[in-house]
């Protein structure tokens, strides 16, 4: 069983995440969309550190992000979850679209986000936190048997001010498979690059390649009871490292702030960007070199 989990982690782990000058957030979105024609392939992993009596889990997901136009980015996610001593399961897929509402940069830049999730109850990637929290001790096989069709919308507001980025996300989610009402959540992020000037030489470890910040995210209940009661919240320092021109590595330890949050989450990801992917693909179909 252990070796199956290791193979599973490895398979997801080899797909990597990173991006040029991208904010280092894991949960919060800023207003920067993918450049048109670029494909970004990323792998992210969330490791949940348990309280006594709970199980540690490893939840990796792969992300494929494509810039359709300068104002429309689409993303496909494939996710899984493995629990040592239990099993590793595929937990579903998500399709997400982000639209930039305004043509120019403003003090506050709004982005609309819509997502469909075809997932099951074993999902633990915690790509966002909404509603009320319940930490389940059911086995993966039972959780994976319960399917959920969910739709989610976010209003993303983001501002750049003297190299600082400040982003606020307001989240509403509806599980179409159950009568849970609408669930709410939030994510806030602030970050900045560690150096303002780019040096002339190629360097991997110089400060200009690092971006650091902090995120705060959590649930706000649902239409059945809005507020902080029984909700999970996390505070998470975040850092990203531009490893090369087209790849980056992200890392974040997150700390649970309430007794229904996981005590800690360790998150990391690797992003690889294929520039001009759309154009390259078009050339293949047109038969040009």
């Amino acid at each position: 069983m252990k070796s199956r989990i290791l193979v599973f982690i490895f398979l997801f782990g080899i797909t990597v995440i990173l991006h040029a000058q991208e904010a280092p957030y894991f949960v919060t979105y800023d207003h920067h969309l993918e450049e048109p024609g670029n494909l970004e392939i990323a792998t992210w992993t969330t490791i949940g550190i348990p309280r006594s009596g709970q199980n540690l889990f490893v939840a990796p997901f792969a992300e494929f992000e494509y810039g359709i136009t300068g104002r429309w980015t689409t993303e496909l996610y494939l996710e899984g979850q493995g629990t040592p001593g239990d099993s590793a399961v595929f937990t579903g897929w998500r399709l997400e679209n982000r639209f930039r509402l305004l043509k120019r940069e403003h003090w506050i830049n709004p982005i609309l986000y819509f997502e469909y999730e075809g997932i099951n109850e074993a999902t633990k990637i915690l790509k966002e936190v909404v509603g009320n929290a319940e930490i389940s001790s059911e086995r993966n096989a039972d959780l994976a048997a319960v399917h959920a069709h969910e739709i989610e919308a976010k209003l993303i507001l983001s501002s750049n001010f003297h190299d600082w980025n400040l982003s606020e996300n307001f989240i509403v989610e509806k599980n179409l498979s159950q009568a849970e009402g609408f669930e709410f959540g939030y994510a806030l992020g602030v970050s900045r690059p560690l150096s303002k000037i780019a040096s002339g030489n190629e360097c991997h470890f110089c400060l200009e390649n690092f971006n650091a910040g902090v995120e705060l995210y959590g649930g706000l209940g649902s239409t059945n009871g809005f507020g902080f009661h029984q909700t999970a919240h996390y505070l998470a320092p975040v850092i990203s490292w531009q490893v090369s021109d087209n790849s980056s590595f992200h890392f974040s330890p997150s700390f649970g702030l309430t007794n229904v949050s996981y005590p800690a989450l360790l998150r990391f990801g690797y992003v690889y960007e294929i520039r001009g992917f759309g154009q390259k693909l078009a050339r293949v179909f047109e038969g040009k070199p």
Binding site: G70, E105, A198
Partner: peptide
């Protein structure tokens, strides 16, 4: 600012002095 409707992305995420560079 870019001109997203004509294919030029916005690069406001690049630090200010680097945009001057």
């Amino acid at each position: 600012n870019g001109n997203p409707d004509r294919g030029m992305p916005s690069f406001s995420g690049i630090p200010e002095l680097q945009r001057w560079q």
